[in-house]
Design a protein around this nucleic acid. Structure first.
Length: 445
DNA sequence: TCTGGGGTCCTAGGACCC
DNA sequence: TCTGGGGTCCTAGGACCC
């Protein structure tokens, strides 16, 4: 009797043997980073803006309570923000990148490097396979406490047998922090059923706006409804294997496994909105050359080379509709005779592409460069008909990278990048780069 | 006046090959 | 008179993520 009840109990614990996942997600990450260096802003409403100070991309709970909308345009919330004395920051990616590294290093110290998958700047999946079942809850709290102690960043932790369920658990942990203490486990089938019934389809990881609308039209409104649909149906209606995986994950069958870290990017892009409309080809060239330099740096940082360069420009929309939309994007790409990571070999083709798509008399608001068909640098295929790139070129590139990294952005650059940069984005409220620049260290008096 | 900047994966369909 | 079919590679586009 004892034995059989044990078996039936463990069959309800899919975490055992099947592995289990935690998702650790930083709370209001960018805002938290700013607060680490401005402790007086603790408990005060603050927001962080996107590049160009366009949108709100991070809000503290206090700002959220004031009704400041996430991902909404800044100007729409400006009134509320000013009236309530909300502190506003432009985004400071040097700072966030560095803080992110510290958080991830802490997680690696806790569960081992091989059990951490960095999912985004502020999120990581952990494989908790090796943690005994009855210690998982305690361990989840330990993760939260340690990260906060070591880095000053508060996080929420969701634990479940699959990544998709862990995401849902994390959502709950974040929603009612006082009650959950930022940790939620979704382990037994009873808990899963209860929670999935309360979760709307648009709250599921992997269901975006397009599928959410379709699902609701079909009368599938909760995550529980979706979980109970047949796999064949998902295959036919929700993007093939993607839909099948999603349903399995909701049922507790792990179908999205841990990814190895440090996989090389298959595409590298640098794109920006301008600080104002640009009509002049010469100015566009400055911008595109600058973006090409940036993209090439990213390429070299991962020791890769690219064979395809594409350039796009976005004109101001012509209609005056109330919905926000871009004008028709113009783009063009070229396949290079051989893969390269040298800025000077990429800028030329990029300039040519820009000339091809540029139209005189139009006003442009955005441009970008994308590098793709990426291969590892050491295996760059030589092209028989081209002279080999000279060693001096490689030497020059690494010298430029070193100077730019250790001094200021763009201390050394190619002439085509321009020196005025009148078009560059607005960043009126950027905090100092306390953790990555000696001259911007926080002072304690 | 003012609306970010990256990325990934998957599928369908066409070109081409034998 | 009868006129294949399977495989691979590539690209465009759609969907998603934070």
């Amino acid at each position: 009797m004892d034995k059989s009840s044990n078996t039936s109990r463990s069959s309800k614990l899919p975490l055992q043997g099947a592995g289990g996942y935690a998702i650790v997600d930083c709370n209001s990450f960018y805002c938290s980073c700013e607060r680490v260096f401005y402790p007086d802003l603790w408990n005060k409403p603050i927001v962080v803006l996107s590049n160009n100070d366009g949108c709100i991309i991070s809000r503290s709970d206090e700002a959220k309570d004031l009704g400041v909308k996430m991902a909404g345009p800044y100007f729409q919330s400006k009134y509320v923000i000013e009236k309530n004395n909300v502190k506003v920051f432009s985004s400071n990616y040097h700072l966030y990148g560095d803080m992110s590294m510290r958080v991830m290093d802490t997680l690696r110290a806790l569960v081992g490097k091989e059990n951490v998958e960095v999912y985004s700047v502020d999120e990581a999946f952990l494989n908790l396979e090796k943690i005994p079942f009855d210690e998982i809850e305690k361990f989840a709290h330990k993760i939260r406490e340690t990260v906060e102690q070591w880095t000053g960043i508060s996080v929420s932790v969701g634990v479940a047998p699959t990544k998709t369920l862990a995401k849902i658990a994390n959502h709950i942990a974040k929603k009612d922090k006082a009650k959950t203490k930022c940790v939620t486990l979704l382990i037994t089938e009873e808990e899963q059923q209860r929670v999935l019934k309360q979760t709307r389809v648009n709250g599921i990881w992997g269901v975006g706006g397009a599928y959410a609308n379709k699902l609701i039209n079909w009368g599938i409104t909760s995550a529980w409804d979706l979980r109970n649909m047949p796999e064949e149906w998902a295959h036919a209606n929700m993007g093939g294997v993607v839909g099948v995986r999603l349903i399995k994950e909701l049922r507790g069958e792990p179908s999205i496994v841990m990814k190895k870290e440090l996989e090389e990017k298959k595409m590298i892009a640098t794109t920006r909105m301008f600080g104002r409309l640009v009509t002049d080809l010469y100015e566009l060239k400055e911008a595109v050359a600058t973006y090409t330099s940036r993209a090439a740096e990213k390429l070299r940082r991962q020791h890769s080379a690219a064979k395809t360069v594409s350039v796009f420009i976005v004109p101001k929309e012509e209609s005056h509709s109330t919905d926000f939309s871009h004008g028709p994007t113009k783009s063009a790409y070229i396949t290079l005779p051989s893969a390269t990571s040298f800025t000077n070999e990429l800028i030329g083709p990029a300039m040519k592409l820009l000339e091809d798509i540029f139209e005189n008399g139009r006003e442009y608001k955005k441009a970008g460069v994308m590098l793709s068909s990426i291969v590892p640098d050491e295996s760059i295929q030589g092209n028989f008909f081209l002279a080999e790139s000279k060693g001096t070129n490689r030497f020059l590139m690494s010298a430029v990278d070193n100077v730019n990294f250790s001094m200021r952005d763009d201390a050394v650059k190619f002439c085509s990048s321009g020196v005025n940069k009148d078009w560059k984005m607005r960043q009126e409220y950027r905090s100092k780069r306390h953790s990555t620049r000696w001259d911007e260290l926080r002072e304690v008096r």
